[in-house]
Simulated scan of single mutants.
Amino acid sequence: MTSPSKRRVPLWLSIPVVLLILVAAGWLFGASGQVTGVEFSPDLFEHRSFRYYQWCGIRVTTKQTHVWRSEFDDYLHDSGYVDTSGIDEPRWQLVKGFAPHVRGWSGPANSLCLSIGCFNGRDERWITWSNDHPELAKVAWPALVQLSREGKYEAVWELLFRLEEPPLPDVEQLQKFIDDARLRDEG
């Protein structure tokens, strides 16, 4: 007969206890919790919010998404500047994200969204600008869509900056600026 001090805990009881301790420690001390963010599809000109939970940096739930468009996205679609035909597998690029123990991070599409003003309803200014300058919009917005699809977000930022800077270019000057910006971004 063994003494009470030498009794072993049954294996079937010790495994769940150890797992519970590991999960709790990971949740408290690891990069665990909700991860959220926004992605942008240059192919569809749509945004997608996402959310999932992670434990110690490992995703433990499915990624929940919600697709949405800004007012300017809708304007580009409604005006015929965005053609999505033939796009079976759209690309999604990170705009910004937040996770436990991370201050936040941004991706390649962040500069595009900041320039356009996709958040907080600041993109309405480009719709107003388009209504005020329809001939320039016919040149600027197809170029913006194409540059975005090519991942040339710095050229997009330059284009939008130029459109806000007086004096406004004429159509030929704008086309030359777009061509030059595309070449600068390639170099």
Rank of each mutant, 00 (worst) to 15 (best):
M1I: 00
P4R: 07
P4W: 09
S5H: 14
R7F: 08
R8Y: 07
V9K: 05
V9M: 12
P10S: 13
L11V: 14
L11Y: 11
W12D: 04
L13F: 11
V17T: 11
V17M: 14
V18Y: 06
V18Q: 01
I21W: 07
V23G: 06
L28W: 08
L28I: 02
G30L: 03
G33I: 04
Q34E: 14
V38W: 02
V38H: 07
F40H: 10
R48M: 13
Q54E: 15
C56W: 12
I58K: 12
R59K: 15
R59P: 14
R59Q: 15
V60H: 05
T61C: 07
T61E: 03
T62A: 14
K63T: 15
Q64P: 00
Q64N: 12
Q64A: 15
H66V: 03
V67W: 00
V67N: 13
D73C: 01
D74T: 10
D74I: 04
Y75R: 02
Y75W: 05
S79M: 14
G80Y: 10
V82H: 00
S85H: 12
S85V: 10
S85T: 15
G86E: 06
G86Q: 03
I87R: 04
I87V: 15
I87L: 03
I87T: 08
D88R: 11
R91P: 05
Q93G: 06
Q93D: 10
L94D: 04
K96C: 00
G97A: 14
R103Q: 14
W105D: 11
A109F: 10
S111I: 15
S111P: 00
L112T: 08
L114G: 09
I116L: 12
G117Q: 04
N120D: 14
G121M: 04
G121P: 04
G121F: 10
G121C: 01
D123A: 02
E124I: 11
E124W: 13
R125K: 13
T128V: 15
W129R: 08
W129I: 01
S130G: 09
S130K: 06
N131W: 05
H133P: 02
P134A: 00
E135Q: 13
A137L: 03
K138H: 07
A140T: 04
A143M: 07
L144A: 11
L144F: 11
L147E: 03
R149W: 05
E150M: 07
K152V: 02
Y153G: 02
A155S: 10
W157H: 12
L160N: 06
L160D: 00
L163A: 06
L163D: 03
E165Y: 13
P166E: 12
P167M: 07
V171R: 13
Q173K: 10
L174Y: 02
K176I: 11
K176Q: 15
F177P: 09
I178H: 09
D179C: 08
D180C: 00
A181Y: 01
A181E: 06
A181N: 01
A181G: 04
L183H: 12
G187Q: 14
